[in-house]
Design a protein around this nucleic acid. Structure first.
Length: 526
RNA sequence: GGGGGCGUAGCUCAGGGGAUAGAGCAGCAGCCUUCUAAGCUGACGGUCGCAGGUUCGAAUCCUGCCGCCCCCGCCA
């Protein structure tokens, strides 16, 4: 990982901090809300007051005296002991040059400790289409995988099809009933798509339920894959639960935890003593009728994942599955793995507010319907822009009728505007701003926005929060639009024009990267 | 009853120990003879659910309470 423009500044502060006795401390630089407080600020002197047993302002003064960097123009001690830094024009030039030099890799590799990490996401039953509720899983999981990969992890993306068990049997029964013109079972699948699939399969009325189930799930898997590809979600592997039973992996996993002493028999069933491993209760592995439970499949599946070499297995699950956390970690531990290698990310549920439009068009429940209504870009953005532990309300009216006001277009518009400028400039851009460049405030703000990208990527990856990228894209777009309004690019003095063109190219690059990480296109024109 | 998540502007939500708490939308007032007005500028809008605690400093951490959502199956 190469140093980012901001980390070069904080490294200089860290050297000064070490010199006054704060050895090895990481210094966080933040951008003050008040421009009077400089370009970057740190409260490190306040934090050092206690360990150094000195007054914060004195410490700040000593740090300031030790501070040496070609990129820092001035240091000021303010308030209770803040250090306010102002950067030099050469830093702005350097920062823009850094973006252009690294191109699409700018901000990449930001993570401190890269590893092999699997992201398992969506994983809906192959008994129905991808719904809007599941779409949040898809948008979040895919963006998280993109973010991990960009930040430096070796990522595997997997979809786990629960193509075994009672739900699948019910699906088969429902299909067969529809094919015969009858109603599906009471607790079967009622959706209109069931009849479509049944007709499409063309199985004879005498085909058995298992054949219907098998053909039906195969058909649904095909549909799901098509929808997800449209939603720009990619998977490296499509894992079938039934394969775990077919290969005997489930039985082997049960034998393994039994050998470890985590299993007991009661009421004719086989139980996992998960309550001793942090779960809130024991779990049945083999029912009294001899059939395996879903938990038994989990044991085999975790084994399979971790034995494939992943350091961490991330599960992306909806809030209604939060009880899974304890169960999965207990399962991992029972198998002898460090439960920390199982990383469950829970996202809160999507509530769909149906407005006038959706009433007219019928209930919008599937992802395909949502995409038909608002397009992939708006849908991806809407579903990842909020923190995953925050419940979200989707107002279809707002997303469609007011789509011109949607933040995604604001971001895309910034990129399109830059593209227009670059088209006009016709390739005369420099690789770096001119040495004489003295950025105006709007330019300096834009540079600082770009400079913050690598740090943001690292933080977003660490916190598993790709929504940060959406917010970042919006902030950067705002900085660009303000720059655009205040600073003419084409036709000003050549050194300034060259510098601004370089800044434009750097901005376009970062916008492309940030938007790509949330699965949104950066158009050349709008 | 037990557990998890969330209460921040009229609405949807960022921010998760630092200075005067932000954005988008809605609404008000302005800005197109220059690179895309899907834009910009200004004003308006807040007891950060409530009450304690920790701290030099709390929207942020801790405890309790209130409210909303979700889970608590030999379903998946």
């Amino acid at each position: 990982m190469s140093a980012s423009p901001v980390s070069e500044l904080s490294a200089a502060v860290e050297r000064a901090v070490s010199a006054v006795g704060g050895d090895g401390l990481a210094v966080g630089l933040e951008r003050p809300a008040d421009p009077g407080h400089g370009d970057y600020a740190t409260a490190i002197a306040l934090q050092l007051a206690k360990p150094l047993r000195s007054a914060p302002r004195d410490i700040a003064g000593r740090i300031a005296a030790e501070l040496e960097s070609e990129f820092i123009e001035s240091v000021e001690i303010a308030g209770p002991g803040f250090l306010n830094l102002r950067v030099t024009p050469s830093w702005h030039r350097h920062a823009v040059g850094r973006v252009l030099e690294q191109g699409s890799r700018y901000g990449a590799g930001a993570i401190a400790a890269p590893g092999r990490i699997q992201v398992e996401y969506v994983s809906g039953n192959p008994t129905g289409p991808v719904t809007v509720a599941t779409a949040r899983n898809a948008a979040y999981g895919d963006s998280l995988a993109r973010l991990f990969e960009f930040a430096g992890h070796d990522v595997g993306r997997e979809y786990y099809f629960n193509d075994a068990g009672r739900q699948i049997d019910l699906f088969g029964e429902s299909l067969k009933a529809r094919a015969a013109g009858a109603e599906p079972p009471e607790d079967g699948y009622q959706g209109a798509y069931v009849a479509d699939v049944a007709a499409e399969l063309g199985l004879g009325p005498d085909a058995d339920v298992a054949a219907w189930a098998r053909a039906g799930t195969d058909a649904m898997i095909g549909r799901i894959r098509t929808t997800l590809a449209r939603f720009r979600c990619s998977f490296d592997t499509w894992f079938l639960e039934r394969s775990l039973y077919e290969t005997g992996a489930v039985q082997r996993a049960i034998d393994r935890v039994r050998a470890e002493g985590h299993v007991y028999d009661a009421d004719g069933a086989v139980w996992l003593r998960s309550s001793a491993l942090g779960d809130d209760k024991d779990r049945v592995l083999v029912r009294s009728d001899g059939s395996f439970t879903y938990v038994a499949g989990d044991l085999a599946y975790i084994t399979d994942k971790l034995e494939r070499g992943f350091d961490t297995a991330v599960y992306v699950l909806g809030a209604d599955h939060h009880g899974y956390i304890g169960r999965l970690k207990a399962a991992a531990q029972a198998l002898g793995y460090d439960p920390a290698r199982v990383d469950v990310q829970i996202y809160q549920l999507v509530r769909l507010r149906e407005g006038k439009m959706s009433k007219r068009a019928g209930r919008i429940v599937t992802l395909d319907d949502l995409l038909d209504a608002i397009g992939v870009d708006a849908a991806r953005y809407a579903l990842v822009q909020r923190g995953h532990d925050q419940p979200i309300d989707l107002d279809i009216d707002l997303l469609t009728a007011q789509n011109a006001e949607n933040p995604v277009y604001y971001c895309q518009y910034a990129h399109a505007r830059i593209a227009a400028i670059l088209r006009r400039a016709d390739g005369g851009e420099a690789a770096e701003p001119d040495p004489s460049w003295r950025p105006e405030p709007a330019e300096a703000e834009l540079v600082k926005a770009l400079a913050g990208f690598p740090g943001l990527v690292a933080e977003a990856a660490e916190r598993r929060g790709p929504h940060r990228l959406a917010g970042y894209a919006q902030d950067t777009a705002k900085a660009f639009h303000q720059f655009y309004k205040q600073c003419q690019v084409i036709g000003v003095e050549p050194p300034v024009e060259r510098s601004r063109l370089a800044l434009c190219r750097a901005t376009a690059q970062v916008m492309r990267t940030a938007l790509d990480l949330v699965g949104v296109d950066a158009p050349e024109s709008m």
